[in-house]
Design a protein around this nucleic acid. Structure first.
Length: 493
RNA sequence: GACCCUAUGGUCUAGCGGUUAGGACACCUCCCUUUCACGGAGGUAGCCCGGGUUCGAGUCCCGGUAGGGUCGCCA
């Protein structure tokens, strides 16, 4: 039983082989792995994102996916999604869904890979299954091949790979040629386990076999894999093929320079979905961490990023995550967003805050949202800027009440209310003229009336343009709110 | 402990032997103004340290230091 992994016959798996790989001989793979240097035919790159379903999509993982995706799109290649769900106990279908949802939210569509989170379900592309849990046959065959050729051996129930002792040069498209000698611990025993004693293959093995089976030409992944790449290169060579090209991208760190874990601010993609970030803004910001267009461009449409992104522009040093700048990018995206998309995201955000805009006329909702489009950094902030449009009972901000709802303002506010009542049309220009005329009659600056009026209408000391907000609110609602505020004890009864 | 990567304002970055070291976020000041903002005009702040190469070094080399990564029957 403990040898379950090897106990099954090494029968050919039933799945259809990749078109590039169908011919069979290992030698053929070499051409696949040298797409830009061999033959007369230029082969398009095939890259992959291979997350482990841990229950969240880490921002570093999302950026790795993004760089792979951009590379594929830039070169007209293929972006493959593969699920590394070898740890059955930990990986649930719900955890896979979180990955898929995150990638879809970001707009990182995959050309090959799962269609749903069901590991045994449908997939797209000729190199399936795209779940490692479904690829045991392939791993077993590869291990048998190594065993039969004396390149691996069994010890204490596990199968170990015979690692070379000489340093391995890792040709990296970002870092250059990296020479990786053995560490002192590895000097003692350079071999490593590729199949555990319980029969389960380990990461280094399955990762290499899958990349080989799927014809992956470029491995773009986090720098944390850099030194382990020597193992992978040795494995590829043991299988008789040249390894793919590698590009190790720098990690994303916390503002204090420590490693980001899922608990750190901004570390998981779901918070951006929940906090009302625009996915295109998150994507744009992520591009800027570890890649530079070199010409000071920052806010770029996706089409331009795809056109300009390439591995030579990837930086070698790790970057610290800066939520403030992300918020700025998001704000830039919101304010320049097409109105229809803005309305859609805004209505969604208001709904999440318990404000049902469906009970208001569409034109009213849009006019209200128009007045605050440049305000929020994220959509989750939006209700705070415009909820007064949609509530009958508004709550007065306490500190501002003390400042504005005072006896000294009573007569002025009442006078303004009366003046507004006389208006035949209730346009912002009329309202502004009326308020300023009233202020002049009272011999005060406009601000003296503006503050208590804003408070009466919105309950807040800050917000959109007062005159425009009153126009949107409409005459009846505006007068009612001012009248109601005048009853506040602060005005002296 | 060993090995690998990295090092420009607080942050993201441009620079690729000769620059008043550029841009963006953040911060500060002023102007504009119905609030908060936007916008406009300014400002504070940077080449980790030490050697070397060179007429000349942020830029090349070496050594430190610091940060990150790896050396698992985790992925």
């Amino acid at each position: 039983m403990r040898r379950a992994f090897r106990a099954q016959p090494a029968a050919a798996s039933g799945r259809a082989p990749c078109p590039n790989l169908a011919a069979g001989p290992l030698r053929f793979y070499c051409e696949v792995y040298r797409p830009f240097t061999t033959g007369t035919q230029i082969m398009k790159p095939r890259v992959r994102f291979a997350p482990s379903p841990t229950g969240f999509l880490h921002i570093g993982g999302a950026r790795t996916a993004l760089f792979n995706w951009l590379f594929a799109r830039h070169h007209g290649g293929t972006f493959v999604l593969r699920i590394e769900d070898t740890d059955v106990a930990r990986n649930t279908q719900a955890a896979v869904d979180i990955i898929l949802e995150g990638l879809r939210w970001l707009g990182l569509d995959w050309d090959e890979g799962p269609v749903t989170s069901d590991a045994t379900g449908a997939s797209r592309g000729p190199c399936g299954p795209y779940f490692q849990s479904q690829r045991k046959d392939s791993y077993r065959q590869r291990v048998e091949a190594l065993l039969s050729r004396g390149l691996a051996y069994e010890k204490e129930g596990a199968i170990r790979f015979k690692m070379q002792r000489e340093p391995i040069t890792i040709p990296d498209m970002v870092c250059g040629d990296i020479v990786r000698p053995l560490t002192d611990r590895e000097e003692l025993d350079p071999d490593f386990v590729i199949v555990r004693s319980d029969g389960e293959p380990v990461f280094h093995l399955v990762n290499v076999v899958d990349d080989l089976d799927m014809g992956i030409t470029h491995v773009i992944r986090g720098e944390d894999h850099l030194t382990n790449t020597a193992k992978h290169i040795a494995l590829f060579r043991a299988f008789g093929v040249e390894p793919p090209r590698y590009a190790h991208i720098p990690l994303i760190l916390n503002p204090d320079g420590s490693k980001m874990s899922k608990r750190d601010q901004g570390a998981i993609i779901s918070v951006y979905m929940e906090e009302g970030f625009a996915p295109e803004a998150v994507l744009n910001y992520l591009c800027l961490l570890g890649w530079s267009p070199k010409d000071n461009r920052e806010i770029m449409p996706l089409a331009e990023i795809i056109e300009r992104f390439d591995l030579p522009g990837v930086l070698r040093s790790s970057a610290k995550f800066d939520m403030t700048k992300l918020q700025w990018v998001n704000w830039e995206y919101i304010r320049s967003m097409p109105n229809d998309r803005y309305y859609e995201l805004a209505v969604h955000a208001l709904g999440k805050a318990g404000i049902n805009t469906n009970t208001f006329p569409v034109e009213y909702v849009r006019a209200a949202l128009d007045t605050v489009k440049e305000k929020p950094k994220t959509f989750s902030e939006l209700p705070g800027w415009c909820d007064f449009y949609f509530k009958d009972e508004i709550v007065f901000a306490p500190e501002a009440v003390e400042r504005d709802f005072v006896p000294a303002n009573t007569a002025g506010l009442a006078k303004l209310r009366d003046a507004l009542e006389q208006l035949a049309t209730f346009k912002s220009s009329d309202i502004e003229a009326t308020l300023k005329a009233t202020a002049k009659e009272l011999g005060v600056k406009a601000g003296v009336l503006v503050h208590p009026t804003r408070m009466a209408c919105t309950g807040k000391p800050i917000g959109p343009s007062l005159y425009h907000l009153m126009q949107v609110l409409g005459k009846d609602r505006t007068l009612a709110r001012i009248g109601h505020a005048l009853n506040h004890p602060g005005f002296g009864g």
